[in-house]
Nucleic acid binder design. Structure first.
Lengths: 260, 260
DNA sequence: TTGCTCCTCACGTCACGTGAGGTGGC
DNA sequence: TTGCTCCTCACGTCACGTGAGGTGGC
């Protein structure tokens, strides 16, 4: 037996507010089974309770409405599970980042800020490298960079090139200023080959960052401040060189060379 | 030495997008140190980098801008820490809820839905009780209910009244339909006293929920469906009775008594 | 008849992002 | 002069919430 329920009854049974139900109808996520042609009253079938509860649970986990729509539309249960698992995985990563972020923030609030003056002016020579370029959002960068560098190393092995120095990446201004930009991940190689590109030489101010990536902003702040104080800033992408998992060189473009 | 930075330089040093910086200026969260009167160009002092980075970290944790403003405005470090700790505590609870929610969802997707027909029609007699009423949002209810019932028990002991049955709460329709409503938490007592109120008698359909609170929606769905199928629904608040930590009676108001 | 439930429509919220159109500095 | 950075202003986005003004059913 399938009864028709008023929006109020349906609301109590699904924990969805009346406003939310009307919204889901409007955007086509969950349409009532029947609509009274005279009064416009929405009538929901009791068989819709399960679907509505699933919607609420996904929304509680901040799954976007479009994704929820996909889950519900998937006739193939494999498709459905794929979307759900993907979202739960994103959630898990999000939780992890949040926890790291909280820990880092608490440490920051307790510590004295370090005075960083150990910068070095250096000329980065032209570097042949295997590269990968991609427009990446600021928040999505970590998740992109790691597998991409791994992939480049695999390619290197296949082509028979030899690694010549630490991995790195170039970040253009708009990556920071607009929150999205074309990032270049690279692995330097000993000899140029068909698949390689030459990164141009640049003058940079370098500051080494030791510790978790979450605190990298501190090094950017310190380095950028020193460059600005000396008035030696130059246009061009910022480069990061990943010396070890716990140590990163931040290279800020400047006008003068090492001869200063 | 305190240099003035363009919005683009400042963006790179703080990981805040230019759009975000302009927004923070507009809402008065972070004003540039100087504004070029001719061009309108914003100039940020290098000493503002720390503040801006703190803002970004709080915003990364979804702290509302108004709360961030409070943190920054707090001259008293004790005040400041209180706001931060409060927010981190909210974050922690949020994470916990999310994890429970994910686990519950995964279980739900694997299990067969149970067919619940073990409902009982019952007349709840008029009940003298010590009560606490409060307008509570749906999402904030759990956090309110538990300490409130504990407080009522403390009061009881002081006044010398005797508990007479399990704790409970009344939830009016708008609590579900608008996502906020005046919830009544109560502890039944043996004899009415100056501090007690009598809950009126009602006829209800009862379904027992066993298991985590996260799955309570399933019981609401099943019970509401049965009540609707039989066409015996009546106006009035829904009552929950907390038999044990793992077992809750959901009582849905109906028109008929136990004599059906 | 009264109160209750439900309806639509327009606008608000939050924290920005998008994009048009334009200007200053080198 | 050209390209680059920066500016304002108006509107869009997302998932609803708010509130006005009104109607049907018992």
């Amino acid at each position: 037996v399938d009864v028709l329920l008023s929006i109020g009854e349906f609301s109590k049974m699904t924990y969805l507010s009346v406003k939310a139900l009307r919204h889901y109808h409007e955007v086509g996520l969950l349409a009532p089974t029947a609509i009274d042609p005279m009064t416009g009253y929405r009538r929901y079938a009791s068989s819709q309770v399960q679907t509505a509860q699933a919607i609420r649970r996904f929304r509680d986990l901040d799954m976007p409405i479009d994704d929820v729509r996909q889950v519900l539309a998937a006739t193939d249960p494999a498709d459905r599970n794929r979307v759900i698992v993907q979202h739960l995985e994103r959630m898990r990563q999000q939780l992890e980042r949040t926890q790291l972020s909280v820990a880092s923030l608490q440490a920051l609030l307790e510590e004295e800020p370090r005075d960083r003056t150990d910068i070095e002016l250096r000329r980065l020579p032209a570097t042949p490298a295997l590269v990968a370029r991609q427009v990446v959002a600021f928040d999505a960068c970590g998740a992109w960079l790691e597998p991409t560098l791994a992939r480049l190393h695999t390619q290197l092995a296949i082509v028979g090139l030899t690694v010549d120095g630490p991995d790195g990446a170039l970040y253009p201004d708009e990556f920071f200023e607009a929150g999205e930009g074309e990032v270049t991940a690279y692995v330097p190689v000993r000899a140029a080959g068909r698949a390689t590109i030459e990164l141009p030489a640049t003058n940079v101010a370098v500051l080494v960052h030791d510790g978790p990536f979450n605190d990298l902003d501190q090094t950017y702040g310190a380095l950028g401040t020193i460059v600005a104080e000396r008035g030696i800033g130059a246009p061009g992408p910022i480069r990061e060189r990943y010396l070890t998992p716990a140590s990163t060189e931040v290279c800020w473009p400047i006008t003068v060379g090492t001869n200063q």
